[in-house]
Design a protein around this nucleic acid. Structure first.
Length: 953
DNA sequence: CCGAACTTAAACATTT
DNA sequence: TAAATGTTTAAGTTCG
């Protein structure tokens, strides 16, 4: 346990990553990718010497290390790494590599990890033994403080910085300053690793530690991965993996692969190591993820972190962390040199901290100097020579894909087999940590390493932020993933997995099983389609049309929901206002106030309305409705002449809501009273003043609602009264207004219609201008005919009766509505039914989930078809809106312009049609609102109703 | 309480 | 043959 823990911790603060890293040693050139950075962070593989110090000064050493290391250029990077990966406080470790390596290709590595955890650990142990110092520090810091996984990234970063302070004196100063300057000079030689300029990169990283996964880079990386599994990571600093064999090839005997190993022990051991090897690791040659490798005569140290300290371990002094223990020679300073990755220069560099300096490529480098490390750079500290080996370069030469460990291996490989075996075993003993890591043994050797069972992360190993499952649905997740990472050809399943892991690191750490859900969604959800076939499987893409449609539906639903909510509030407000404004009705109010009966009525009301609508439709009462609507619009416009600084949009929204409220209330009241016919028309004809009062109240209520209370009263009751008087006289006038049929009112319509965000956006698009009432008239005409305005007399009574009788259930109502509609359907679906239908349709569609039932299909076609013309229209409108809205929508991903392909539905209507459709939509929305209101209308309405009734009567 | 949406499993088929 | 990939079905969960 200890070992494991230690190792893990030491390597990874976060823990999660560590295991992987442990197992696999890949040497990466420091790529800058965020991913890598994240994952990789610096775990210094070797560091693990761990066990020893676990407790102690973790903070110091680790911090220092990281800080120092990175500090120069990398500070940020360090932070990032820390953040991203699982850094620990120490900041050292994070062997997160595996995380990054999501791809199948990487899977090997991962597998290896799992399998070889032991091996790795063993190696670590070896190292630790040899290199106690380093690990100790790390471990200490980790073990003690961290205990667990996550120290907040910030902390880590901070720590790192602090650490610098602590120990840094030496390291930092020298390395830091020197590096930058010197490095530049050396850059050429430096490891180019093809990484992008570090600065930008790491800054980014730093900025978004948490975001690591999300980083934009990832996508590219992922994509790259497709082509080159490893490649993806290349950008980043992810450690490259290579098999230990490779290492073996090199000089000496078995290098101790270990990352962890430290100390003289390592040296000492070497000889022994072989024996260890004999013990053998788990079979294969474990691949080891590492950024670089230090080949000593008797052992090999894998640089698995971005910063490693080379020196003489002081057993007494744990304050000094030593990743690579060069033995007891006094000629070697406890902190003699440090190898770190300079993000600025994109290469590893060596800073000489020890007073005695060192030889680099046979050139003496004094204390305080930093030199770039190239592949094969020879270094001699004291009497100990070793060589710095970059996996990457090796690979790069080949241009190997990341996966091809072989390539890299070719160069590197060689030795290890033995080593691997050796190390792992040892580690095994040490490490027990992973719960399930059992897998071992896979043979990775040459070909395909058998998959290793996925590593099981302990809670501690998982960064806090990645411990909880994202709330996003699979469909949304897949959509996002594909949008972000997919190429024109689509994404393979494995790529999708990788993309998801990148986007949602939770899936890096969680148990398998989600992949099944992913596949399930890809297959069943119509949002996804097979683009082309590649290899074993398909490349998946998005069905933007379907998605767009779905989005619309969702939006619509949400809007409707919002509208309903608003309507409900407005009603309440209205009632209040009315009570206040209409003192005369007080007595009635009291009566009205009885709210008890509300609900029963609601449904009835809705039904009634539906019936009315249907009836109206049937009877061609449109004229009355239109007339009434015109009147209402006109009055509303008049009432709101004084806009009080409110924008068109706001006014439009207010008018829309006010109209809806008025209609609803009046209708409901009429129903309640058993008034047959078209209550609005009747009221308009018989008692316009009263109607105006209602309108005024509705406007104020709507105003308060729309402005969120900023403006509580847009209309002066007195004025209203006056208007009412006029209204009576002017009734005829209304028509004229109405006449202006369509004008490009979209904005208004939209605004009026939904008054929701979409509309708003849309509104913005429009040029500011005087509010055009005509727009309202337009809307109202069509829609109301269908809905609200049930022509006065005729059907009403029946409807009312129905409404009353009909059992209350919203959905049933739908049915009822459908029934009623059956009759009315002819006119426009806009009726309540249409709403209901649309809703249902939307639901289906929204059911993005179409997953299971294949709703998707139904949704797209079905919903539309079912939804009646109205729904179709809505959709169309939605598209239009979607375009408009797009920008605004936070969900860029989700929203798509349907530019390219339009659904049949969409296609049906042309632009103009689209406008019409929009109008209709709006109308529908309004209707929906009305309906909603209707449904919701409760006792409050009664008051109004009473008033209305009285007035009417 | 119901149903839709979504998740999770599992069985099975297909492909490489 | 083993894995990966796809498809389908079913059961469970959540939410409105």
């Amino acid at each position: 346990m200890d070992r494991e823990m230690a190792i893990v911790e030491s390597s990874n603060h976060l823990g999660a990553s560590s295991p992987a890293t442990d197992t696999q040693i890949t040497m990466n050139p420091p790529l800058i990718n965020e991913h890598e950075v994240k994952g990789t962070t610096e775990s210094i593989t070797g560091s693990s010497g761990n066990e020893i110090p676990m407790e102690a000064e973790q903070a110091n050493s680790p911090h220092i290390e990281t800080g120092e290391e990175l500090s120069k250029s990398p500070d940020i990077s360090v932070e990032k790494e820390i953040e991203n990966t699982i850094t620990d406080d120490n900041g050292n470790l994070k062997l997160e590599l595996p995380d990054n390596l999501d791809n199948a290709d990487f899977s090997k590595l991962l597998e290896f990890d799992a399998k070889n955890d032991e091996a790795l650990f063993n190696s670590n142990e070896l190292l630790s033994q040899t290199m106690n110092t380093v690990n100790e520090i790390n471990i200490e810091g980790i073990s003690d403080d961290h205990n667990e996984e996550v120290t907040p990234r910030n902390n880590i970063s901070i720590e790192a910085v602090i650490s610098h302070d602590d120990e840094k004196e030496k390291t930092q100063d020298n390395s830091g300053a020197v590096k930058v300057e010197e490095i530049k000079g050396f850059e050429e030689t430096g490891i180019k690793t093809a990484q992008p300029t570090t600065d930008a990169i790491y800054t980014e990283k730093n900025e978004s530690p948490a975001e690591e996964d999300d980083d934009d880079d990832t996508p590219s990386t992922i994509i790259i991965e497709k082509n080159n599994p490893l490649h993806t990571r290349n950008n980043s600093i992810t450690p490259i993996m290579f098999q230990q064999h490779e290492l073996l090839t090199q000089p000496s005997q078995h290098s101790v692969t270990e990352n962890n190993s430290t100390d003289a022990e390592t040296f000492e051991r070497k000889p022994s190591e072989p024996s260890n090897e004999s013990l053998s690791l788990p079979n294969e040659q474990p691949t080891i993820f590492a950024y670089a490798r230090l080949d000593f005569q008797s052992f090999t140290f894998y640089v698995q972190t971005l910063h490693a300290i080379i020196g003489r371990r002081s057993e007494n002094d744990f304050s000094h962390k030593v990743d690579v223990n060069l033995g007891p020679s006094k000629s070697i300073s406890r902190r003699h040199a440090q190898i770190f990755y300079n993000f600025g220069t994109g290469r590893f560099e060596l800073s000489i901290i020890g007073k005695n300096g060192a030889f680099v490529d046979d050139i003496f480098v004094e204390k305080g100097n930093t030199v770039p490390l190239r592949n094969r750079t020879k270094i001699q500290i004291g009497q100990i020579p070793f060589q710095f080996i970059l996996p990457e370069q090796e690979r790069n030469e080949d241009s190997k894909s990341p996966e091809n460990p072989e390539v890299t291996e070719s160069e590197i490989k060689i030795k290890d087999l033995k080593k691997n075996e050796l190390k792992p075993k040892k580690k095994v003993s040490t490490v027990t940590k992973p719960k399930k890591p059992q897998a071992k043994a896979p043979v990775k050797k040459d070909k395909k390493p058998p998959k290793l069972p996925k590593k099981v992360y302990t809670l501690e190993e998982i960064p806090l932020e990645y411990r909880t499952k994202p709330t996003i649905s699979y469909s949304a997740m897949l959509t996002t993933c594909i949008r972000k990472y997919s190429t024109a050809k689509g994404m393979s399943l494995s790529e999708i997995y990788a993309g998801i892991r990148e986007l949602f690191p939770y899936y890096k750490y969680c148990a398998d099983g989600w992949q099944s859900s992913v596949r399930h969604n890809l297959s069943l959800n119509k949002s996804f389609r097979k683009v082309s076939k590649e290899g074993k499987g398909w490349l998946w893409g998005l069905d933007e049309e379907y998605i767009t449609e779905r989005e619309r539906q969702k939006k619509k639903q949400s809007e409707m929901a919002i509208a309903k909510a608003h309507a409900a509030q407005l009603k309440l407000e209205q009632q209040q206002h009315r009570q206040q404004q209409v003192p005369s009705q007080k007595g009635k109010k009291d009566i009205v106030s009885q709210k008890s009966p509300v609900y029963a009525r609601k449904q009835n009301i809705s039904q009634t309305l539906a019936a009315n609508r249907a009836a109206s439709n049937k009877k061609n009462t449109a004229s009355d409705n239109q007339r009434t609507m015109k009147y209402l619009q006109e009055q509303l416009v008049i009432l709101t002449r004084d806009r009080k600084g409110l924008s068109k949009q706001v006014i439009a929204a207010i008018l829309t809501q006010a109209l809806a409220m008025t209609i609803n209330q009046v209708t409901q009241a009429a129903k309640n009273k058993g008034i047959t016919g078209n209550p609005l028309t009747a009221l308009m004809d018989k008692n316009p003043q009263h109607l105006n009062l209602i309108l005024a109240a509705a406007v104020n209520a709507a105003t308060a609602k729309v402005t969120k209370g900023e403006v509580k009263q847009l209309v002066n009751p007195e004025t209203t009264a006056a208007l009412a008087a006029k209204a009576q006289n002017s009734k005829p006038i209304t028509q004229p207004i109405v006449q202006t049929p369509n004008v490009p009112d979209r904005p208004i319509t939209q605004s009026s219609a939904s008054a929701s965000s979409h509309n708003i956006n849309y509104m913005h698009d429009k040029p500011p201008g005087p509010f055009d009432p005509s727009s309202l008239s337009r809307f109202f005409q069509p829609r109301q005919n269908a809905r609200v305005a049930s022509p006065a007399a005729a059907p009403v009574p029946v409807t009312v009766a129905q409404s009353v009788d009909i059992p209350p259930k919203p959905k049933p109502t739908l049915n009822s509505g459908g029934e009623s509609e059956s009759g009315s359907s002819s006119s426009t679906a806009s009726s309540s039914e249409s709403e209901s239908d649309s809703d249902s349709g939307s639901d289906d569609g929204s059911g993005s989930g179409s997953d299971a039932s294949g709703d998707g299909s139904s949704t797209s076609s079905g919903s539309e078809s079912e939804s009646d013309s109205g729904s179709e229209i809505d959709e169309k409108e939605d598209k239009g809106q979607s375009e408009d809205v797009k920008h605004n929508d936070t969900e860029d991903d989700v929203i798509h312009n349907n530019n390219g392909s339009s659904n049949g539905h969409d296609t049906l209507e042309t632009d103009e049609e689209g406008h019409d459709s929009k109008r209709q939509k709006i109308v529908e929305e309004i209707d929906s609102v009305n309906i909603a209101d209707e449904e919701k209308i409760g006792g409050t309405d009664n008051n109004i109703n009473i008033a209305i009734n009285s007035s009417i009567k």
